[in-house]
């Protein structure tokens, strides 16, 4: 294995850690707003780091670009959907946990 491979493994493990933490938060946090917070962290950062780890293994620039696009799209939709769910919750007068 080369240094690049080790770097990939480390990055993917860090990414997986973010997903694990996000899932734990989704299951254990007390209300919808804190759960959204946990979920979007996993999506944004965990996926980003995993994708950087995967990019190191690719040979063509095209494939790297596709992965980057996937991350950007998930960032965009994840952030927007989190906002919409939170707004919906506020409109239904769900109180934040204290």
């Amino acid at each position: 294995m080369t240094i690049i491979d080790y770097l990939s493994i480390i990055l993917i493990i860090i990414g997986a850690f973010f997903f694990l933490a996000g899932t734990l938060g989704l299951l254990r946090f007390p209300d919808i707003y804190t759960r959204l917070h946990a979920l979007t962290k996993a999506d944004n950062l965990g996926l980003g780091i995993t994708i950087i780890g995967l990019m190191l293994q690719l040979e063509s620039i095209m494939a790297v670009g596709k992965l980057l696009l996937i991350w950007l799209l998930v960032l965009l939709s994840g952030a927007s959907v989190a906002h919409l769910i939170a707004k919906g919750a506020v409109q239904r007068k769900i109180r934040p946990w204290k």
């Binding site: 799209l73 965009l76 939709s77 927007s80 906002h83 919409l84 707004k87 919906g88």
Partner: peptide, 17 residues
């Protein structure tokens, strides 16, 4: 419909994609 500038922008950005 659920009026939200975020949803509006999202649909404008995503439809061409």
């Amino acid at each position: 419909p659920f009026i939200s500038p975020v949803l509006d922008t999202l649909s404008r950005l995503l439809t061409p994609v």
